[in-house]
Design a protein around this nucleic acid. Structure first.
Lengths: 113, 113
DNA sequence: TCCATATTTCCAATAATATAGAAATATAAA
DNA sequence: TTTATATTTCTATATTATTGGAAATATGGA
């Protein structure tokens, strides 16, 4: 991962509403949550929420899929893993060259239903 | 770690100059690097650098110590570990309750000289 | 076709952040 | 005590982000 992508992911997560949305989506699992339900959960006006979701989407941290008139948003686990990997490699020891194996971050994934 | 602190750390890292500074300090180790040397390394005006260093310090991600007229800045490894822990617990699976042991993030530290 | 639902886009106001020169502060050394 | 060095704080400006109401878009059903 290159630094611009890391900055973009970090920016997306560096705002309380968005971090809360992302945490919620991570918990919610692969099937995702309709935008309206997220808004109700957080008590945010839908236009504000939509703005935040688009920031997260732009950063690649969430995906969405339409089902009828409903848009289901879900966490993009692989993207979060990439970010964690970048931080581990670049911001935790600076010894990734010397300890390549042990510095590979633990993989994480969604829970099976 | 509570969400406000996580947001503050993420905000500090969500800007390219600051992320670069932090990466550099992580590599540089516990003894730290004089502000002037950081500025030379990044090609930033010192007043701009000073602004960014104060953001990082405010977020708790760097420390500094004076030696004569020189201020040595260094990465605060424990704070970064805390942030990684928060992200692992809250943004990677949402199953921290069920898998408490394995979800504890790997500890990282500075290299011995 | 017309209406209801889910959500986004548009817009304007406000707030927060970033930048860098100039002045100020802290320390050391002559 | 004067001068030089290291760094910060001040200040103004420019840029970017956040907010939420209103209008627009997309879809499905009567």
């Amino acid at each position: 991962m290159e630094i611009e992508k890391a900055v973009s992911a970090l920016s997306a997560l560096s705002q309380e509403s968005r971090l809360t949305v992302f945490r919620y989506l991570v918990q919610a699992g692969l099937e995702g949550v309709p935008a309206g339900r997220i808004g109700a959960h957080l008590g945010l006006p839908l236009s504000t929420l939509s703005f935040h979701l688009s920031q997260l989407k732009h950063a690649g941290l969430v995906k969405c899929r339409r089902e009828g008139r409903t848009l289901y948003y879900s966490a993009h686990y692989a993207a979060m893993n990439e970010l964690m990997g970048y931080l581990t490699e670049n911001c935790c020891q600076g010894i990734s060259e010397k300890r390549k194996v042990s510095s590979r971050p633990r993989k994480v994934r969604a829970l099976k239903k």
